[in-house]
Structures are given as structure tokens and as C-alpha cells.
């Protein structure tokens, strides 16, 4: 049975540059199996962090990208038809709970609130998952842990987690790293030179100044890495910034122009 989760194991160490004490804190949280919540803007390294921790703790990682249409069965499991009749198929959450994986629910606020409550019994001291339709109560494997992530920024107050959900988790705040660290990350991941990465990070900082003044979010570290990779492949830096940074982030012609101009102040 263990083969089913083996595919979720992470075999190679993912690159992760720790920013503060988050690695130690997460390890401590895992040692007491405290459910964790990662907050932060898009593309700042939440998913990479979970992958890295799963590798470090040597646990399989089951990731579920949440969306509005996701229902409880998508997490827990459902009956399917087979030649003999019906057959139960575990959902990702049930697999993780049975086999002791880390279950990572990405962008959890996107899921409807009636869906998020199915994780409640797993996140307190009961650590069980009732499979109502099957009539089974899954006791979570001792190694099982649940991690959720969300971006408090762009959802405004329209979408938010229930207090009863929030208060079951320990929280780690993620932001874009400090200038030097972000430069190091961009240089490492994209293969661009340190000097180039430094400029890219400076451009991103310019765009983050515009957050709330015409931009919903600033340029993320992920976008910088894309731009850096293009530059490392020999693309002209200004063109790379246009393609990978400015064009994706805004449709407003004035904003596009202002950002293009900000790019040229570095190249």
C-alpha cells in the first residue's frame, strides 16, 4: 500500500533560501503535528517552502490546488463504479491521513466554506477523518500533517477564512525577501548574473511601490526568476522584462508605460 504515497515523495532537495527562522519553526510545529497556515502574496515562495520542508522531514507531500467548485468529496473521496458494483476511492486528504503524508491545500480561501470545514476534525486533537458515505472513521497516521496557504492581499474581505478554521492553525507570514536575499534567490534559480538579479529585484521593488496605486500586487519573486531565465538565455534584458514582468501584470496602458520607464531606469 505504501506505493501509493511513494509517488508523492520528493527525491531531490528543492532549492530554498531561508529568510528568517521559518524552517526551525516549521520543524517544531511538525514535531507536535500542529497544522500550519502560510500567508503571503503570490509567488513569494510558499509552495517552495512546503516542498523543501517535506523533503527535509522526509514525508510525502500531497498538494491540492483549491478552487471554487471544489467540494468535500474532492478532498475526502467518493464511490466510483467498477465492474463488480461500486468501489470507494480515497480523495487526496484521505490518502494523506491514512499514509502519513503532508497534505498541502494551496489557496485554501478559494474553496467554499462548507468544503473547508471537512478538515476541522483532522486539525484538532481528534485527528480523525470521518468518511460519512463509506461509514468509516480514518484515524490519522502519526506522521500526518496539514498545511494550508492563502494570500490575504487580493481577496480583500470578500473571501476570508472562518474564524473557526483560522484558529486551528499556526501561522507563518511570508513576504518578498529582503533585497540581498531576493537577489541571491533570483540569481540561483534563473541562472542570471548577480548584477542582473540585483537590477531585477530593484525593478520589482519599484512595482511594489505601486501596489494599491493602480496595481493589485507587485511583481513577485517568481516573475523575476522567469525574467532572469530569459535574460540568461541571451534575451535582451529590456525585452525580457517587458515579456516576463510588465505585460503580464497590468492591462492599463498608463501603468504599462510607467513600468516600462521604470525598467529603463535600470537598463
Amino acid at each position: 500500500m505504501s506505493t501509493i504515497v511513494d509517488q508523492y515523495r520528493i527525491s531531490q532537495e528543492p532549492y530554498y533560501r531561508s529568510v528568517a527562522d521559518e524552517v526551525a519553526l516549521f520543524e517544531a510545529a511538525y514535531s507536535v503535528r500542529m497544522p500550519m497556515m502560510l500567508k503571503g502574496p503570490t509567488g513569494c515562495g510558499k509552495t517552495r517552502f512546503v516542498e523543501y520542508m517535506a523533503y527535509k522531514l522526509d514525508r510525502p507531500l500531497i498538494t491540492v490546488a483549491c478552487n471554487e467548485d471544489m467540494t468535500a468529496s474532492d478532498l475526502v473521496g467518493r464511490f466510483l463504479l467498477s465492474a463488480q458494483g461500486t468501489e470507494w476511492q480515497d480523495g487526496p486528504l484521505a490518502i494523506a491521513a491514512r499514509h502519513g503524508a503532508i497534505c498541502y491545500l494551496d489557496e485554501v480561501v478559494e474553496a467554499r466554506q462548507d468544503t473547508t470545514v471537512v478538515i476541522h476534525p483532522l486539525t484538532d486533537n481528534r485527528r480523525v477523518l470521518p468518511l460519512e458515505k463509506k461509514g468509516e472513521l480514518v484515524h490519522a497516521h502519526p506522521d500526518f500533517q496539514i498545511v494550508i496557504s492563502y494570500n490575504p492581499g487580493y481577496q480583500s474581505l470578500m473571501k476570508d477564512l472562518k474564524q473557526s478554521t483560522k484558529q486551528r492553525f499556526g501561522g507563518l507570514d511570508f513576504t518578498y525577501p529582503e533585497h540581498d536575499i531576493e537577489t541571491e534567490i533570483v540569481a540561483h534559480e534563473s541562472g542570471a548574473s548577480a548584477e542582473m538579479a540585483d537590477k531585477l529585484v530593484s525593478i520589482a521593488e519599484r512595482s511594489r511601490n505601486l501596489k494599491g496605486h493602480g496595481l493589485d500586487e507587485g511583481l513577485s519573486t517568481r516573475m523575476l526568476i522567469y525574467a532572469g531565465s530569459l535574460i540568461a538565455k541571451g534575451v535582451n534584458p529590456q525585452a525580457a522584462c517587458r515579456v516576463a514582468l510588465v505585460r503580464p501584470i497590468t492591462d492599463d496602458p498608463d501603468m504599462r508605460d510607467a513600468l516600462d520607464a521604470a525598467v529603463t531606469t535600470f537598463f
Partner: peptide, 15 residues
């Protein structure tokens, strides 16, 4: 004017 405004804001983080 709007473009220039955004440009200055991007550079210096103020209006």
C-alpha cells in the same frame, strides 16, 4: 500626467 505620476511613485514610493 497619469503616467508620470505612476512613474514617480514607482521610483520613490511616494506621490
Amino acid at each position: 500626467q497619469r503616467r508620470i505620476n505612476m512613474y514617480l511613485r514607482a521610483l520613490w514610493a511616494r506621490d
